[in-house]
Computed example of a mutant assay.
Amino acid sequence: MARPVWTGSISFGLVNIGVALYSATQSRDVSFRQLEQGTGRRVRNKRVAEGTNREVEYEDITKGYETNSGDYVVVTQDELDSVRPDKSRSISVDDFVRIDEVDPIYFQRSYYVAPRSEDQEHAYALLREAMKEAGLAGVAGLVMRNKEHLVAIRPRDDVLVLSTMFYADEIRAPHDVVDGLPGDQDLPSRELDTAVQLIEQLSTEWKPEKYHDTHREQVLRLVEQKARGKKIEVEEPEEPVDNVIDLVAALEQSIEQAKGSSAPVEGVVTTESGGAVMAAASRVPVGERRL
């Protein structure tokens, strides 16, 4: 069994439930070490003072906050400790909200919440089932690893799931990041109706096990082949061929393709008036898509 990453209690009203948090997810990224080409020797990073070749010992390193003028305000660890959040072992749920009202952009990392002992199981089950009945999720604060987190707690089957969240001021406004976002437009009804029909045709039941990290699988296959001494032939990718066609025609053909009765629609799709480019529908059959 996994070890908990945090132990404490959840409180709502005057009820306190002893709980433990367990990581609900794990990274499956393929990691590599940096090696010197030709010798295969491991390359390691050193902490070097800027403008010198002098390596700095870890105990001689302090923290500095860079200001807009480019200067640094040096802050000691003792000074940071003085404003560190209290090491509270309680998650106090004071607000309950509808989880479907929370934009997924706010969610960071998820943890399973479990009762800390058998004595806590009844109260834990009561909270879980009450939240299911109400259709609500709890919003609270959590201090973990010397950082204060905003969290949402929601029921999922037999377990409560806690997700750390971004604060509102950490969410960037899209128009501050992206140029050229189209606003409200008076779209031709035929285009819109056909696009909706295509989306509905491609809709399916959410089954996460259908989707695989095919790039990771290919990287692991490549590593395995090289470990067996196989020479890897690197081929240049083919350049895509543009095929400019009518937007509605492309949507209609995509619908037929989704039904399995038409050949794939290739290339770039544009409006007759040269409007915004729109990609043709996925050429992977419904239910066999990969991320």
Rank of each mutant, 00 (worst) to 15 (best):
V5F: 01
E235M: 11
T7N: 12
R98F: 14
R116Q: 13
K207I: 15
L222I: 13
V102M: 10
G13F: 05
R289V: 05
Y124G: 07
G275Q: 00
L21H: 09
A279P: 14
L160K: 00
D78P: 09
K87M: 12
N146P: 01
M165I: 03
N53R: 10
A227T: 11
V265M: 01
V286G: 07
D86E: 15
P240L: 00
E118A: 13
V161F: 03
E252G: 03
V219K: 02
D81M: 07
S117Y: 06
Q197S: 15
P104D: 08
D29I: 00
V75W: 08
V5L: 07
I153G: 04
E224P: 01
V48F: 10
L162P: 08
E170T: 05
Q225Y: 04
E233N: 12
K87T: 12
E57T: 07
S92A: 15
R44D: 13
L162T: 01
T52P: 11
E191A: 09
V159K: 05
P115I: 00
G267S: 03
A227Y: 07
V139R: 01
L14H: 08
R289F: 06
Q225F: 06
I99Y: 14
K63V: 07
D186F: 03
T204N: 11
E118W: 06
E66L: 09
F12K: 05
S189C: 03
D103A: 03
T39E: 12
D179H: 10
G180H: 02
G275S: 01
V56Q: 12
L291E: 11
D119T: 10
V277R: 08
D157H: 05
D103P: 07
P4I: 04
A276Q: 14
L160V: 03
V15D: 09
Q197E: 15
E148F: 10
A173T: 08
D81H: 06
L14Y: 08
I91P: 07
V75S: 06
G287D: 09
R3K: 14
V286R: 15
T25Q: 12
G38K: 03
F32S: 09
Y112F: 15
E256Y: 04
L251E: 05
V196F: 13
A280E: 09
M165V: 04
Y112A: 02
A280N: 13
V113M: 05
K63H: 10
Q37L: 11
M165T: 01
V248F: 08
I17W: 02
L160Y: 03
R44A: 14
